[in-house]
Write a protein that binds this DNA or RNA. Structure first.
Lengths: 314, 314
DNA sequence: CTGAAAGCGCTTACAG
DNA sequence: CTGAAAGCGCTTACAG
């Protein structure tokens, strides 16, 4: 019957059926930024999954703290969606209460909450694995470039913090001391990564390798290194995070973690919850993808593989 | 009154007011892919503009011809949105009729339609300017790498085709013959650009420069060139399109065209139309941004600047 | 100018 | 099993 009607170009008025049933058959997706590869990818995967189940998707970009406040401070979603996927934004207690009071089912991606379905990568483990790779190559001064998590930025969130923890863990396990100057934070962008790397290079004793918490920042780091006349990986090793599609072009060693899969999982978790299922928390593995941006430090290599002489600037 | 009510956490039921007024206060945005920089950027800008005016935004990703058919073949938007922004998809006559019959106002981005508001770049002019830059440097065999526009891909659209026209125009104006082998098309991605460049390199008489219709394809082209042992720009010049944020990292000369501005314009055009204004067509300028991927061809430079000897492989 | 009533187009519980 | 009625929560045209 419904199918036959649809063939004839008829659709039930969504407004009327929403009013009658109280269900909107739409899901909201909330992200801190749209114009980034990671978010396009996760939203795309979640959207496809949702649409296959007959849901429409409403999009909310919370680019500033003000927007975030307004969004959670008002019943914006009430009557507009049945559930919401929050990506890369760690909602506070108040914010979760706000969503609940609006009758929203919730699923988190790259964040966690008590009794709430979530998908995330084992960022501590991934960070540790990344740094171990550098350590195993023989690096002794390994820096960390992280995503700044200050007031004014929504982008920090849990995963970047966990990657830092993984970094420190790996150092401790290797018996290395942690140094403040080796931990640099900036905004999650090419420019931010460039700025952070610049700061590392002027340090009294510069590191020989860096684990960077996002590929985009790593790209900026590579740029600064190149402009400083340093060769990667001969003079400096860089390891990123995300396996951005341009990693191959730039030869960046990175941690891969199935970004689209996480978007799809988040959608499924939300659908489950809306159908009365118990909220679950999914962990996604990350794995090291070795390309051309990591190698043993110069000192070691000199002994082993007889490299040509280095330029005088070095 | 409404503000006071909002403070108290009260909102009018959207479903009820939609039913009563017939207006949904939401706009749909339709794109062929989400996980690309260009689309994130335009959607983000449009979304912000729309939200400032009190509109919600529904997102539709039409990734396959099947999805496109289903979307336009059913009254999907009827009663769900008041208007729609179609990005980088050239709607056919039937498709436009479908939208109109669903009571949708329409604005196009990167496409055009009779009596329909639209924003686009002067792609013919931009393509011509790009190729002229290469020609002015002294290149005589300039290739074009374009976005494939075949069945099975929605991504072709008008702009890529217009860039090809601009390319041909510049050649004609310079008195150069057009050659089929120098025009290569592939999918709009790093991989597609790489494949197209590989084909150019095996041509009987390989070109010395290429104008590539998108930066992402250009990145793939750079990768292939590097792997083939060719130096850019010494052995080969590459010129892209979009001014992707990674152009600076890769030193890619490209055509810049304010992507976010186009998204914002499209939203404004739609809002105007929904308020009874006449649909307008906006043209956005593109401008050449010279970086390190373009230079005179080897032959010329040899005479003028006494380059060191080239490797034997060349 | 204020306030009660009709109506938007569905769904669902209920009467027949 | 079928069909008429009530009700979802607004807006708006109309009566007072």
């Amino acid at each position: 019957m419904q199918e036959a009607a649809a063939e004839l170009g008829y659709t039930a008025s969504p407004a009327a059926s929403r009013l009658a049933t109280g269900r909107t058959m739409t899901v909201a997706i909330v992200v801190p930024v749209l114009a980034k590869w990671f978010f396009g990818k996760t939203i795309g995967a979640a959207t496809q999954e949702l649409r296959n189940t007959g849901y429409d998707v409403l999009l909310y970009e919370l680019a500033t703290p003000g927007q975030r406040e307004r969004f959670f401070g008002s019943p914006r979603l009430h009557g507009r969606s049945d559930g919401v996927i929050v990506i890369a934004l760690q909602p506070g207690k108040k914010e979760l209460e706000s969503l609940a009071s609006q009758g929203q089912a919730v699923a988190l991606l790259g964040a966690e909450g008590p009794g709430i379905g979530s998908v995330s990568v084992d960022n501590v483990g991934a960070g540790r694995d990344a740094v171990r790779h550098l350590l195993n190559l023989g690096h002794e001064r390994v820096a960390f470039i992280g995503i700044r998590d200050e007031e004014g930025s929504n982008l920090g969130g849990v995963p970047p913090r966990q990657r830092l923890i993984g970094y420190r863990k790996a150092l401790v396990e290797a018996g290395l001391a942690r140094e403040g100057v080796l931990e640099q934070f900036d905004e999650n962008s090419v420019g931010g990564g460039a700025a952070a790397m610049s700061r590392l290079l002027v340090a009294a004793r510069a590191p020989t390798a860096a684990f960077v918490a996002s590929d985009e920042m790593a790209f900026g780091a590579l740029m600064v290194l190149r402009r400083a006349g340093l060769d990667v990986p001969r003079d400096f090793s860089v390891l990123g995070f995300d396996n951005h599609e341009l990693c191959e072009v730039l030869g960046l060693t990175t941690m891969d973690h199935d970004v689209a899969g996480q978007g799809q999982d988040a959608a499924r978790l939300l659908l489950d919850t809306m159908n009365g299922g118990q909220p679950r928390s999914l962990g996604r593995p990350a794995r090291l993808v070795i390309r051309e941006s990591t190698a043993p430090p110069r000192v070691l290599r000199k002994n082993s593989t007889a490299q040509p002489d280095l330029p005088a600037t070095f």
